[in-house]
Computed example of a mutant assay.
Amino acid sequence: MNQPLARALRGAGLDAVDVAAQLGVDPKTVDRWLAGRMPYPRHRAALARLTGWMLRDLWPELPAQVIPDMQADEVRIVYPYRSAVPADAWSRLFAQAQEEISILAYSALFLAEDLAASTILCNKATAGVRVRLALGQPDGAHVADRSAEEGVGGGMSARIHNALVGFSRLIEAGAELRLHDTVLYNSVYRADGEALINTHIYGRQASHAPVLHLRIRSDIGMAATYLDSFERVWAASQERVG
């Protein structure tokens, strides 16, 4: 039996019938793949896209020469909206960090209210991992614009104030906090070599916008572009006093 493929499909919430429908094959064909039969190359590539796993992870027996450029692909998985991200994905992301965690958002209130994730962040900061938190300036012009776009009045500012209270223990644990007044096209949640990127859509809350799970492969490419945006905002932000 192909245990990696079975685990990958379970992790993506897919069964044989789901995969068969998306790939246009008979469910019995998928069962044969799960039993150990090697799919055709086009089906291997499709299964890798569906699960977010690399080809060599799904089929360790593949010779290196049949693995296409997809091996270097930075995109692990794409979620249609943030609320579709598994609840424990944030904890798993931060738990793996050994060197740095960087968060760029307007409020990130959902994380401040996530006890498991916020506890891990505190533990990491206490252990010496560099944790940087860049949140929106509550009275900033762009925060006000974002509130107007979402039709929530002063709701965005209120969420930031609530998040600052929620993250107070994290700050006490040694995390760095800065406030920014910039237009955010994406929120960035980085832990060492991986990042979750929450895109922003006009008139929609961030929880209703897509999320990209990226692997950081090099100093160039998609992930590097998002991380560069974090550094630019961080450099232009102000340390919070009091």
Rank of each mutant, 00 (worst) to 15 (best):
A116L: 02
N162M: 13
V66D: 02
Y81I: 00
G140Q: 03
I101A: 05
R42F: 09
A112S: 08
P41E: 01
L170D: 02
A45I: 10
V143Q: 08
Q96P: 03
A46M: 06
I101V: 12
G140D: 04
D57P: 02
W33T: 00
V131C: 07
V165L: 15
G153T: 13
A45V: 09
I120T: 13
A134P: 03
A95K: 01
W59A: 01
T119K: 11
R82C: 08
F167N: 03
R44H: 09
A144T: 15
K124T: 07
L121S: 04
L164C: 10
C122F: 10
Q137M: 15
G36F: 14
A45K: 02
L109P: 12
M38F: 07
W33Q: 00
Q137S: 12
S107D: 08
A89T: 03
A134Y: 02
A105V: 08
Q98W: 04
V75C: 14
R92V: 06
A134M: 03
V165W: 12
D114V: 09
F94M: 01
D57V: 01
S157E: 11
A117M: 06
M54V: 03
V66P: 04
D73L: 13
Q96D: 11
D73M: 08
I171D: 00
I120W: 05
G166V: 13
W33G: 00
I160P: 08
F167M: 11
Y106G: 04
A158G: 15
R159L: 15
R92W: 09
A158Y: 12
V165I: 14
A127L: 09
A125M: 10
E113V: 07
S107T: 06
P41S: 01
R159S: 15
A64E: 12
R56L: 09
L115T: 13
D73W: 06
M54Q: 09
W53C: 04
S118N: 04
A163Y: 14
V131W: 05
A35W: 13
A141N: 04
